[in-house]
């Protein structure tokens, strides 16, 4: 049967689901977590850890963000205020109507990680995408080995998800959390230094490592991890590119022949080696 225009009318992948913000958490001075549910209080869709969602604010714009966690009836996205859209999103209040579409991308290789010890590395807002994996591992604690989280930010106030870092995650069995900030400051008695050096110093020995942070941190941490003898397929990262459609058509989020929205955002070092360093 040939497709007719009537068939086409039924699905429009560019139209978002109408949703609302049900809770806003101020993580840092410029990062807020938004809880998003459909208008009838359902989960907009069921994302896998590491997948993305296209969040839109009518009359302002649309942006692709990682989904940091999901609940029974909602998904969570943590946004740093950097541009026009995120500035506008930081001004909204609970109850605000938004549009959401997704989930997009491949997500983390959960099955591959099962039963293994994991080293999860985050820098700045880069903890947001890997938080979905951490939360998944905590919810399914017996499926995974030891969890080691190393997280760094510029300063104490720039540390995202502090409740998780200093309370919730410290109580999880077989899980270690190490936090560092770039420069010493008053009221901070934890570790001071950059993430790559801290990881080398801690020298944990899990099989698989997952990292996310600003491009500069990723580029500096990858050599450290290779030095620590992680195999290329066990170094996993999640990348960010400017996106517009999320469905592999608008042509801007490619790294070589891969579209980050479809083939990513999660890549192994093994895959990245075959791609141009354009990220």
């Amino acid at each position: 049967m040939a497709i007719t225009v009537e068939d086409v009318k039924k699905i429009n992948p560019l139209v978002p689901i109408k949703a609302k913000v049900t809770k806003i958490v101020q993580e840092t001075p410029d990062v807020r977590t938004f809880h998003i549910s459909t208008m009838d209080d359902q989960k907009p869709f069921d994302p896998m850890p590491g997948q993305l969602g296209m969040l839109s604010l009518p009359l302002v714009g649309e942006g692709m963000f990682s989904i940091t966690n999901k609940g029974e009836n909602h998904i969570e996205m943590a946004l740093k205020e950097v541009g026009q859209l995120t500035k506008a999103l930081h001004e909204i209040e609970v109850g605000q109507e938004v549009g959401i579409r997704g989930p997009y991308g491949n997500g983390f290789p959960i099955d591959y990680c099962k039963g293994k010890d994991l080293l999860i590395i985050g820098g700045g807002i880069g903890l947001a995408p890997v938080r979905s994996l951490i939360m998944h591992c905590i919810k399914n604690r017996d499926d995974f080995g030891k969890l080691t989280v190393v997280y760094g930010a510029r300063s104490k106030s720039d540390l995202c998800f502090q409740e998780d870092l200093f309370e919730n995650w410290t109580k999880v069995p077989n899980m270690d959390v190490f936090v560092t900030i770039d420069r010493a400051e008053e009221g901070w008695d934890g570790h001071v230094g950059f993430v790559p050096a801290y990881v080398e110093e801690l020298a944990p020995k899990p099989q698989v490592t997952v990292l996310c942070g600003p491009p500069i941190m990723i580029k500096f941490t990858l050599p450290s991890l290779q030095k620590m003898n992680f195999s290329d397929q066990d170094i996993i990262t999640t990348l960010e590119m400017r996106m517009k459609c999320g469905i592999g058509k608008c042509g801007r989020c490619n790294i070589g022949s891969c579209y980050v929205c479809l083939d990513g955002p999660v890549f192994t070092m093994e895959q990245l080696k075959d791609l141009p360093p354009e990220y």
Binding site: V8, K9, I11, N12, P13, L14, I247, G248, K249, L262
Partner: peptide
């Protein structure tokens, strides 16, 4: 591009 396997542009 527009009539890909996974997503079609209506």
């Amino acid at each position: 591009v527009f009539l890909g396997e996974e997503y079609q542009d209506p």
